[in-house]
């Protein structure tokens, strides 16, 4: 049905003759063009957004169903406090912390580092308050380059550090010769702080970034470190939490 057109109400003569709408013709059926108060860059949520939501819900329902039909979730033997599996692993999203645990004191790896990371993430909007780059992925071309630089920097260094600790071994080398606090606290803390500072320094020198871009460099560092540590902890750590190739590590999850 076409939209009904109402004659202007009110006492006759209250609207001047030129302004009065004249009914030219009545056409039944759907109209091609409808009157709208939508701005140029706006759409109606129904249907434009709800369609996307409904479709992605359907797609992911099927994906979940398909995965659930094809692959069964693991169920090991009944819990037994007297039999410790080797390795014993936390759920995969905490394996980044368990990986850190291999390189520093448990309080540092399990509590202090993640707490600082979470607080720092929460503080981001109060560090970078400029409206610069809202709604634009990576803010700018420079932002994209900084993100890639930071990702490669972090990836290479985290992998290098894990390999260094595995094959040279800070703890293995220093154990017995210096107090525990040196290799459990001091060296890891200095290493982490120095590498974060070096990232900031390099970004500053190479890119002369805005504050937003600097925050992006550090956040990217966090995400990539989180990712590398999780993958290494999940797929590359086998018996005795030693490094193995993923195909030699029994999947637990």
């Amino acid at each position: 049905m076409a939209e009904t057109i109402q004659r202007p109400s009110g006492p006759a003569g209250s609207i001047s003759e030129e302004k009065r709408q004249r009914l030219l013709e009545l056409v039944r059926g759907r109209t091609a063009a409808r009157p709208t108060d939508l701005a140029e860059d706006e759409v109606m949520v129904w249907p434009s957004l709800v369609v996307v939501e409904a479709l992605s819900a359907v797609v992911f329902t099927f994906l979940l169903l398909a995965t659930a039909i094809l692959i069964n979730a693991p169920l090991a033997e009944i819990a037994n406090p007297t039999v410790t599996p080797n390795p014993s692993k936390a759920p995969w999203y905490f394996l980044n912390l368990q990986e850190l645990l291999l390189h520093m004191h448990p309080s540092l790896a399990g509590v202090i580092v993640p707490t600082i990371a979470l607080v720092a993430i929460g503080a981001i909007p109060f560090i970078d308050r400029s409206p610069l780059g809202v709604g634009i992925l990576f803010t700018s071309d420079k932002g994209k380059k900084i993100t890639i630089f930071s990702a490669i920097y972090t990836f290479v260094l985290v992998v290098a550090l894990i390999l260094f600790d595995e094959f040279v071994g800070v703890t293995a080398t220093l154990q017995g010769t210096v107090p525990e606090v040196v290799y459990q606290y001091i060296i890891p803390v200095i290493t982490m702080l120095a590498l974060i500072a070096l990232l900031g320094l390099l970004i500053q020198r190479i890119f002369q970034p805005t504050r937003r871009e600097m925050v992006m460099a550090f956040f990217t560092g966090f995400v990539v470190a989180f990712f590398v540590l999780t993958v290494v902890g999940t797929a590359f750590r086998g018996t005795g939490m030693d490094l193995f190739w993923p195909w030699d590590v029994e999947s637990a999850h």
Binding site: A76, I78, N80, T84, S88, A90, P91, F94, Q98
Partner: peptide, 16 residues
């Protein structure tokens, strides 16, 4: 309450 569960929570709670 299988071995996976028990030891994952053991590792997790030791971290805490």
């Amino acid at each position: 309450w299988d071995q996976l569960a028990y030891w994952a929570i053991t590792v997790g709670s030791e971290m805490a």
